[in-house]
Amino acid sequence: MAILVTGGLGYIGSHTVVELQKSGFEVVIVDDLSNSERFILENIEKVSGTAPVFYPFDLKRRELLSQLLDAHTIEGCINFAAYKAVGESQVIPLDYYENNLVTLINLLQEFKERNISNFIFSSSCTVYGQADHMPIDESAPLKAPESSYGKTKQMGEQILMDFAQAHEKKVSLLRYFNPIGAHPSALLGELPIGIPNNLVPYVTQTAAGIRESLSIFGSDYPTKDGTAVRDYIYVVDLARAHVAALQKLLSETEPTAVDIYNLGTGEGSSVLEIVKTFERANNVSVPYAITGRREGDITIAYADASKAEKELNWKASTPLDQALKTTWAWQQYLESRSANQ
């Protein structure tokens, strides 16, 4: 039996594939390569020693998904297939609703018809909006997200809860905080297409001279240094949480289960702290300029991940400086690879 990993050549997906393989799972990947490149597949094999089965197609094409499921005995799915740029989602919202929700529904229709359970959904802390209390635990009320991207995550969660209840399926909703870093091998990492949407890749590219300067949006937040605070979790720690969540689903005997977990470190770091820690960890400088606040940004968000620690026996353990070192090593790998092509 195999685990289907959609978006498995993406940032979090590729790291999770490696951790699944290390844990003895056979992996089948679907990825349309809209936010990745094929060399990531080769690097997964280099890191893990095992080549996953790979299908390069868009999950909106349900007939191709059906053919895949005819060819493999699938035991469960980890779904990373989604567009994820918050700003872009405001410009092309219909593309986000179509891609992020139609692909999910296609998967669930096939799972329903074939009586497959054990579905893990890549969700986000954006479903909480600006929470009323810190740290944020799973009982915090969900608020209407500012972005169409965030709305697709909230809608996706509701679709999955209805699916689990109506069809007696086991589902896990994993709400990430802010993934950072790269694999220790420097062969896997975040691969932004065009201008990065996330802070750390922009920091890295600025340090490398690809970007002239980093814009820090706002210095007047009610935080210790005036910049926004987030919970930054090392991507390999995050990948291991997916394996733990899958193992729990596979072990549950009740036909219907919906598990919800926050995945973060439990600590908040400001934008300036990220910049300064990156500079110290890698002995490089990052030119930056303070600009005005960015519309839709929240002030502070960090996780209470104690439920995941208790129920999954999982905890984020990688220090911030170590995670940021791997990011710089990944950037250097990309530059070397580009120079040799």
Rank of each mutant, 00 (worst) to 15 (best):
L9T: 13
Y83T: 09
Y302I: 05
V53M: 06
N115K: 13
R114I: 15
L334D: 09
L20C: 05
Y96S: 06
L249Y: 10
G266N: 04
T223V: 10
F57I: 11
E168P: 03
P135G: 02
K224D: 00
K60Y: 11
S36H: 05
R62V: 14
D225V: 14
L246R: 10
Q165F: 08
L4T: 00
G189K: 04
T318R: 01
L173D: 00
G189H: 04
K310S: 11
W328G: 02
E335F: 03
R293Q: 07
G129Q: 12
F217E: 13
K46M: 11
A289E: 15
A207I: 06
I193D: 12
E168Y: 07
H133A: 11
D32P: 08
S124Q: 07
H183P: 10
V271A: 07
A289T: 14
K169T: 09
Y234N: 01
L64E: 11
A245R: 03
G266T: 00
L108V: 15
F278R: 03
Y232F: 14
V28M: 03
V18H: 02
S251D: 07
T299N: 12
Q130H: 09
D137K: 07
L188N: 05
R337D: 09
K46F: 15
L191Y: 15
T227G: 10
Q158S: 15
N115P: 04
I29A: 03
G76K: 04
A316N: 02
G209W: 01
V18A: 06
P319R: 01
K22I: 07
L187M: 14
E45T: 14
L250W: 00
E75N: 12
V275R: 02
G7Y: 08
T327V: 10
E190R: 09
P141A: 15
M1I: 02
Q130Y: 12
S251W: 12
L9F: 11
V28I: 14
V275E: 01
Y176P: 03
Y261K: 06
L272R: 09
V86D: 10
I92C: 01
V286Q: 05
N43I: 02
A305F: 08
T318Y: 08
A289K: 15
F54R: 14
E252Y: 04
I116H: 05
V17D: 12
I210C: 00
A305P: 00
Y261V: 14
N106Y: 06
A245Q: 02
Y202S: 07
A281E: 06
H15L: 09
E168V: 01
H72P: 06
R293T: 15
N106H: 13
N79D: 10
P201R: 12
E113L: 12
T277R: 03
